[in-house]
Design a protein around this nucleic acid. Sequence first.
DNA 1: CGCAGATTTGACTAGACTCAAACTGTGTGG
DNA 2: CCACACAGTTTGAGTCTAGTCAAATCTGCG
Lengths: 232, 232
Amino acid sequence: MPGSEYQDVRKLNLFSRMADENFASLMRGAYVQNFPAQMELITEGDPSDFFHIVISGSVDLFSSWNGRETSMATVRPVSTFILAATIKDAPYLMSARTLEKSRIALIPSQDVRAVFDADGNFARAIVTELAQGYRSVIRAQKDLKLRTSLERLANYLLRQQKHAGGGAVFELDFEKRRLASVLGMTPENLSRAFKSLQPYGVAVNGTRITIGNQADLEHFAKPNPLIDDHSS
Amino acid sequence: MPGSEYQDVRKLNLFSRMADENFASLMRGAYVQNFPAQMELITEGDPSDFFHIVISGSVDLFSSWNGRETSMATVRPVSTFILAATIKDAPYLMSARTLEKSRIALIPSQDVRAVFDADGNFARAIVTELAQGYRSVIRAQKDLKLRTSLERLANYLLRQQKHAGGGAVFELDFEKRRLASVLGMTPENLSRAFKSLQPYGVAVNGTRITIGNQADLEHFAKPNPLIDDHSS
DNA sequence: CGCAGATTTGACTAGACTCAAACTGTGTGG
DNA sequence: CCACACAGTTTGAGTCTAGTCAAATCTGCG
């Protein structure tokens, strides 16, 4: 792994406070690979042999049941996925595939568990990471159970706008079909949902969104920090 | 706190391996109280001042938005809730109320964080607990996104049947209105869903369920360990 | 017995999905 | 450079699922 990537990974909250030698040991055992787009990295139900770090590109976490499939989350650089399965030494609950050409580090799960036992700072960082992840999923569940798909879309747009800097014009960071799946609806329904937001000043052109009337949209979306604030 | 309760709490996975003195210290600072039914213990958005342990009774975790409310989970003895908020020192994402007369221990969150920093075994237990909780919520999310309400009910019945010992006749452990909310539907819809399961051999009498044709119901429900297995 | 709350039923509406067809936009080969 | 192919998106029509509102029924309990 090149030094700049090594440093990027080292800077992650998960790794930043652990002992140098423990981090080095983890990285020594890591396999760093470039994957093409649409490559299935892990399959739900498989044993969690590796902890994954996305160095570049992006990864879709998804699940299937009875012929249906849904997108659970997207992982972007530089961050990690399936920590909980690694720690519990339990089967993956989600599958993962690359959305584009991606560079991924794979760390043997047993190495992670060994260092977890040995390095208190790493263990504490894991706790913070898991607590954060747990709260994120709770927020997602509230979003799903308390809002209609139109409300979820409106709030997603406001979150994405904020994430993109707050301007009236910004880009979606999802392909629409995947956005639909993440929001828990079909692509057709998403397309109609965008139209339904036109009266609130939302204009769509490809992946470019323009929010014409911020106050109107916010009045409809009623964003709430206990659902939409992805930092706390 | 009486000695028997003290021992019950001590036996929880979360506390069983920590140093005696640290456990004693946590318990010394705890407030143990009896609450009547329908008492709101915490409100979402409030700072997470206390970590909670349900010693007897039961507690409903729920969330609200824009005048709607949904039940997120039920906590039964002896177990704990809102660990993630306590650890992150962040606002509660859910509210909690007693479902019946309940005995609850409240441990100041800062005490939990202090012992977490001092006791490696406790920190590791917290990691396991959080990883478990995280995976539970992921399963719930898959249940919500991949299944219709009828399928969720069918699978809930199979889980509950297993939990109750596996016999053809068993009791719901929820009031129906709350079960509906947990499953993400209205009480009216739940009532109709039970009727729709009659062709699969499901009979309902109050909270008493009879599964007349196990194979039929399972064929319809298609239970999946990666969604329904609440132990892994 | 008679409430009060919970559940069920009925009628209707709204939200969301399915299937099929039309319409992009983009990249490729002729 | 254009025509085509392909994947993604949009539109249309119809259906199904789930929610709403109101009324009827049931149930536990004082």
